[in-house]
């Protein structure tokens, strides 16, 4: 057992997904089963092995020139907005803990 239901609740809070008690219980079973299958990763001797974060070997320094290109019009930007006011995206009250430390 890698994760308790309490752990799973913490993970869900961090991932901003509201789970019911029943969902937390089921998720705990699923995650523990999946994590069990990740064991091979922990059994390797990886001393001296560099990680590969980017699959194309040697790819580096990809940059663009500092030239303006037109993007969205104001209406395009807000076209999919669930709620808006005064040309801005509207969200309900942000409580102090809604985000990380800014």
């Amino acid at each position: 057992m890698y994760l308790t239901e309490k752990d799973v609740r913490g993970i869900a809070t961090y991932a901003r997904i509201g789970l019911s008690d029943a969902e937390v219980a089921a998720m705990t079973v699923d995650l523990n089963s999946i994590i069990e299958n990740l064991k091979p990763i922990t059994e390797y001797d990886l001393r001296g092995v560099e990680p590969t974060f980017h699959p194309i070997a040697g790819l580096s320094n990809v940059m663009r020139e500092d030239r303006v290109r037109s993007g969205f019009t104001h209406d395009e930007a807000l076209a999919n907005a669930p709620a808006e006011q005064d040309g801005q995206f509207l969200v309900p009250s942000i409580l102090g803990d809604a985000g990380g430390d800014r």
Binding site: T13, A15, G18, D97
Partner: peptide, 28 residues
């Protein structure tokens, strides 16, 4: 009631179970 609840409920109901499973796994 607030943005935090909106995040949690929108994502809980907008995503299906397999998507949530993968997000949870990655978050862990």
């Amino acid at each position: 009631a607030d943005l935090g609840e909106q995040y949690e409920q929108s994502r809980a109901h907008g995503f299906g179970p397999e998507t949530i499973r993968r997000i949870m796994l990655g978050s862990y």
